[in-house]
Design a protein around this nucleic acid. Structure first.
Lengths: 152, 152
DNA sequence: GCAATCAGTACCTCTTTGGTACACATTCAA
DNA sequence: TTGAATGTGTACCAAAGAGGTACTGATTGC
């Protein structure tokens, strides 16, 4: 497949939404605004908070806020927050010694280079950029706004 | 995870091996030379043949050959042969209409751009390049050459 | 005709993913 | 002090995908 998982996709949509209107947002609010299922948003936000992309505020009147300006958050940051380090093959990962023929394998070094190229592409795109909405004429708007699939 | 699957990883290793020593190779030969399990190689080669990256020759004395020079095969070609079109999210794929809020979704267009950047990175690396073996001193060679894991 | 080889399909097992549930901790306001 | 609102942590479940195996059939050359 070679694709990011759906949670990451949701994370980008959710963070994009948060960057457009700053302030404290609760999980139900975010779920309502994005169409992402509430329990999934809760799980997602916990992960994002743990990664330091959002700050959590507990108790009544609490919720989540972006922990830094959207310009300072890249697509690479978001992917890594949800999926861990970007490593298109096992042998690119930090944890060495997983491959028994590391010193002989012809791919040694090449995957790192490919991985670096991909990571570079993702680092050059910030949340501020992708949060810029290109509004379409209302007449073209579809009806299924409440659908759980929030990608397009 | 954001990573290619193991079959794709194997495909790159197998094609790299084939590009280093041209001629007809049988499935058992390839399995022996790369350490990839024989049934897996058989499955893999069928897929690669179907994608047009290798040519099959049936019957006694048959086997597989590269269908074009290694310079003309890119990492993107290999990934697409095994995993289908490179599309990091569902909405990037050719099959439109899967997303109900396509005209409203703020991510519309952004994923395509990100996807294109990644694809570009993969297209710029040919099989000929990655087939160049950087030999290590024999004293450093590990013992587990017959291990099924062939990555490093 | 027979052996060597690829082709196609079906199946199994394990892991990952996406989602749900629930008890608990924290904060604020009445 | 109490209770409601909110996030935290853990566990669990079902579905899908990945990786691998097995078996039968088709094709080719000797």
């Amino acid at each position: 497949m070679f694709r990011i998982n759906r949670l990451t996709d949701y994370a980008v949509v959710v963070l994009g939404e948060m960057s457009r209107s700053p302030g404290v947002r609760t999980v139900p609010q975010i779920a309502g605004d994005t169409g992402v299922p509430l329990p999934t948003v809760a799980k997602l936000m916990k992960t994002l908070a743990h990664a330091g992309l959002v700050a959590s505020h507990r108790g009544a009147g609490g919720g989540y806020t972006l922990s830094r300006p959207p310009v300072g958050i890249t697509v690479a940051d978001i992917i890594e927050a949800i999926e861990g380090p970007i490593a298109i093959t096992t042998c690119v990962e930090e944890t060495e010694g997983q491959c028994g023929i590391e010193t002989l394998c012809p791919m040694h070094g090449h995957w790192s280079r490919i991985n670096q190229a991909i990571r570079g592409s993702l680092e050059r795109i910030s949340l501020a950029e992708i949060a810029t909405v290109t509004l379409f004429p209302p007449v073209l708007m579809p009806t299924g706004l409440a659908e759980p699939t929030t990608r397009g």
